[in-house]
Design a protein around this nucleic acid. Sequence first.
DNA 1: TTATATGTTCGATA
DNA 2: TTATCGAACATATA
Length: 262
Amino acid sequence: MPELPEVEIMRRYFESAALNKKIAALEFHDPLYKVFKSSTEELNEALVASQFIKTERIGKYLFAQTNRGKWLHLHFGMTGDLELFRSEELPKYTRFVFQFEDGDKLAFKDLRKFGVIQIVESPEAYQANNTLGDDLLTIDPQYFVDKLSKRKVAIKTALLDQKYYAGIGNWIADEVLFNCGVHPKKPCNEISSTKLKEILKDAQTVVLEAIKKDTHYGDFPQNFFVNYRKEKALHPNHPNSPVERMVVGGRGTFIVPEKQKL
DNA sequence: TTATATGTTCGATA
DNA sequence: TTATCGAACATATA
């Protein structure tokens, strides 16, 4: 479920589901240990009998601090999600469960297992060790221009890179490039500073609106381009220019040809 | 059966 | 050394 807006919505869900509740036990349900980047011992040590006191989000990365100081880091990959439940039966694709003292259980579900669960010292330490940029919403326009204006990569590829600004994913990149009328394969160094600033501004606007409307994947505001993000779809403003699919940076990419030219 | 899917990482190549 | 590219990861659905 996870680009920046969805992770922000998940952060709020996590807070309402888990904050200030004592953790009674943990359950591990991923036999291949793909999503656990910390050992079961380390997770138990840091989490059992403690409680979460605050959360933080950087781009698509969610962090929660325990009252014992350590931070839990959650990443949702392509298909990660959280679900509060009380039944005996596990929600489908559950990989991990927090059992709380009050009987609530919080499942980390992840069909494709691209997600991550681990204990870290702090969000800042994680950022430094993994070359993760600051959250997209806090990025300064001049910094954005400085980081992009000399690169030769396709603009879409650069937008998906989390190194300098974190949070843009595949549909948001397409959304923003459509809004700004930029072809995804356009090399960064051929785009004016003014246009780059417009791209940043639009990305932030899209993200804020998606958060405000409580957007979940497959359920976007009507005016979003993502609703037409499939081959041959007709956007109402461009009835004579059906949506075209291509691959940019290894990702499926959708454009309206008459609006986004190379 | 083949292609595609909300993401990231790592090895190869330029 | 740095920048970029492409494959790989795991699983379901069209």
